[in-house]
Design a protein around this nucleic acid. Structure first.
Lengths: 339, 339
DNA sequence: CTGAAAGCGCTTACAG
DNA sequence: CTGAAAGCGCTTACAG
C-alpha cells in the first residue's frame, strides 16, 4: 500500500533513521546520502504520515480554532487575517464550530483531546469557571480571541470605549433622543458596549430611557443578526417619538434596522441616524457609519500570540486590546466631533 | 505526564486490550469490567490520543476542506450547512485556505498527506489535469463543492441555467438594454452564468454588446467582490445610455453596483434594475433581487456525499446539481415572468 | 555521519 | 469475555 520510510530506506540503501533525519533536516547527513534519500523518496512518491510523526514527536503541527457560529460574517473577516498568517506556516487549522455559545464547552473538550493540537484559539466565548479550570489543568496553550480573561493571552477590542465613542457622537451631534439596538442581554461584548454608551451619556446628562434599549428576542448569533436589528427598529418606530440616533451593537443589526427604516420610508440620516459596530466590509458598501474593529489584525495577531505561547509557556501573559474607531459614512450626518 | 490506557488498565486491574475495547464499544466486554474501566478512566481524566488511534486504526476521523478565500461571505453560508452536519459527527474539520485560486493546488497537496484525513471537500476549484491525476492516484475520497468534474462526486448549482433565468427576466421585462457585471473572465461559474445569459438573450433577439459586459479588473476573490461591482457600474454609468437591467454574477458585486448607483443618485429599480447571484443573507436585508443558490443545502449535502464515499469507494459517482431560483425583491420591478 | 533499538499510545487478530 | 503480542510509521537518544 502506501510508501513508508522503510521503502525509501531500502531503495536508498540506508537505515530508516537516516531517512528520518533527512526529512527532519538534521544537519548531520552527508550531502550524498541526503540526495540519495531525496531522489528515492521522490520516485516513490513518499509523504510523511502526519499521525505517526506527531505520535513519535509528542507534538502536533495543528492548531485548533473554536469558533461559535462560524457563518457569522464577523468571523469571516478575522479568519482572513489568520489565513494570511497560516499560509507560510507549517501548522494546519482544525476548526470546531457550533451554532451557539452553549456548545462551546463541548467543542473545547474535543479540541483539547490529547494529541489533537499544539494550541487553541478560542473565539468570543465567555469563560465559565469550569472551562477555566479545565483549560488550566489541560495546560495547552490558549489564546482568547474577541474576549478577555486575565488568566490567558487575549486579543480583542475595548467594547466599553466603543460604546463611549458612540455616545460621544450622540452628544456632540446635540441629539437628545438616542436609542440602542442591543444584542442578547447575556452577550458580554454587547453588554460592555451598552455600558460604555450609557455611562458616557449619563456624564453628559443625556437620557437613555429603558424603552429606548431594545434587546434581541432571538438567540441566533447571540442576537448579532439582521433580524434582531430589524425587529428592534420596528419597535422603536412604533413608539410615539422617533429616535434621533440609533446605536446598533453590530453592523449586521444595523443592516436590519436600515431595512425597517427603508420600509417605513424614513430618511437616513435626515430623520434618524444609524451607527453600527465592527466595520465589516459590507458596511462600506452600504454606507454604514460604524465603530471599526481591526478584524484582520485580530486574526493575524491571534496567530502570533499563539505561536509565541507555544514556543514559550512561561512568558508573562499578554493582552492585546485595540481601541475601536468611528468611521463616518452616509448613515450619519457630519458634525464636529468632540472626543 | 498525560494518562494513557496503561494507567487506566493498571487501575482497573485489566489489560490494555480490554481498556481499548471498552472505548471502541466492542460488544464483548462484561458490564462489570466495562464499568470498572470507565470509572478508572473518569477518575484519571483519560482522553484517547487522536494520533495514536488513527495510526493504529489506519484511518483518521478528520476531513479536510479546501476553501479558497475563506473570508468570502459565500463560504460562510455553505460552512453553516456543513457545521450543522458535523455537530453530530465524530469527524473533525481541517480547513485549508488561501487568498486565491492559484494556491489551491498546494493546499490540496498538503491536505492529501497520508494519514491526514479520511476525505476532502474541495471548494470552487477548477481542476487542472495535474490535480485530477494526483487526486486519482492518491485515491482519497473527494467531493467537489461548487464546481464540477465528471470524475468526482460533486454538488453545485447550474450556473448556465442561472444565467438563463436572469435573461428571462430581462426579456419579460421588455428591457432592450441589459448589462452584466462579470467577475474575472477565468472564473468558471461567472463564465457559465454569462454564457447562459447571453445565449438566452440571443434566442430572444436582445442585443448584448461587448461594452455592456464588464469584467473585474482585480483578482481578489476571483472578481467576486464589492469593488469590482462598484467599478463596473461606474463604467456603465459613464456610457451614453443607462442600462435598464444589470445582472451581477454575485450579490457582493451587486452591492458594489448599488453603491455606485446611490452615489450617482440614480433610482433603483425605477431607472436601473439590479439582479445579483447567490442570495447571501445580506441580500434580503438590502432588498436585493437575486438568483438563489441553496447554500445551506450545498454544505450539508457535501458532507453527506463525502460520508457516503468514505463508506463505499466503489459506488457510482453522484452529481447533485441544484437549479437556482429568482428571488424578486426591491432592486427589481415586478413583472409577469415568463419562464 | 550512520545504524540498531526502544518508544510514542493505541488497535486487533490470535489464542484461550 | 480477556490477555499477550505484534504492528501502525515515525523519532531520537545511544553507540560507534
Amino acid at each position: 500500500m502506501s510508501v513508508t520510510i522503510y521503502h525509501i530506506a531500502e531503495k536508498a540503501g540506508v537505515s530508516i533513521a537516516t531517512v528520518s533525519r533527512v526529512f527532519n533536516e538534521s544537519p548531520r547527513v552527508t550531502p550524498e546520502t541526503r540526495l540519495a534519500v531525496l531522489t528515492a523518496a521522490e520516485e516513490l512518491g513518499y509523504q510523511p504520515h502526519a499521525s505517526a510523526r506527531s505520535l513519535a514527536r509528542r507534538q502536533t503541527e495543528t492548531i485548533s480554532a473554536i469558533i461559535p457560529m462560524i457563518s457569522n460574517y464577523f468571523y469571516a473577516e478575522i479568519l482572513k487575517g489568520l489565513q494570511d498568517k497560516m499560509g507560510g506556516s507549517p501548522y494546519d487549522l482544525l476548526v470546531f464550530s457550533a451554532p451557539n455559545l452553549d456548545d462551546v464547552e463541548n467543542l473545547l473538550f474535543k479540541a483539547l483531546h490529547r494529541g489533537r493540537s499544539a494550541g487553541v484559539l478560542l473565539f468570543s466565548a465567555p469563560l465559565s469557571d469550569s472551562m477555566v479550570s479545565r483549560l488550566q489543568k489541560n495546560g495547552q496553550p490558549v489564546v482568547l480571541v474577541d474576549s478577555f480573561h486575565k488568566a490567558f493571552d487575549s486579543i480583542s477590542t475595548d467594547n466599553f470605549i466603543g460604546g463611549k465613542i458612540a455616545a460621544d457622537f450622540v452628544i456632540s451631534s446635540g441629539s437628545k433622543r438616542p436609542a440602542v439596538l442591543a444584542a442578547n442581554p447575556n452577550s458580554v461584548p454587547a453588554r460592555d458596549r451598552l455600558i460604555g454608551f450609557r455611562q458616557r451619556l449619563a456624564e453628559a446628562d443625556v437620557d437613555l430611557p429603558a424603552e429606548s434599549v431594545l434587546y434581541s428576542k432571538q438567540q441566533v448569533f447571540d442576537g448579532f443578526n439582521e433580524e434582531s436589528g430589524y425587529d428592534g427598529m420596528k419597535e422603536l418606530l412604533a413608539q410615539p417619538e422617533l429616535p434621533e440616533v440609533v446605536f446598533a451593537t453590530s453592523d449586521i443589526q444595523a443592516l436590519g434596522a436600515l431595512k425597517a427604516l427603508r420600509e417605513a420610508h424614513i430618511n437616513v440620516p435626515e430623520d434618524v441616524q444609524i451607527i453600527g459596530y465592527d466595520d465589516l466590509s459590507i458596511a462600506r458598501y452600504v454606507g454604514l457609519s460604524t465603530l471599526k474593529q481591526p478584524l484582520h489584525e485580530i486574526g493575524a495577531g491571534a496567530y502570533d500570540l499563539l505561536m509565541a505561547r507555544i514556543k514559550n509557556r512561561t512568558t508573562p501573559i499578554v493582552h492585546t486590546i485595540y481601541a475601536p474607531r468611528l468611521i463616518e459614512r452616509q448613515t450619519t450626518s457630519i458634525f464636529e466631533l468632540i472626543v
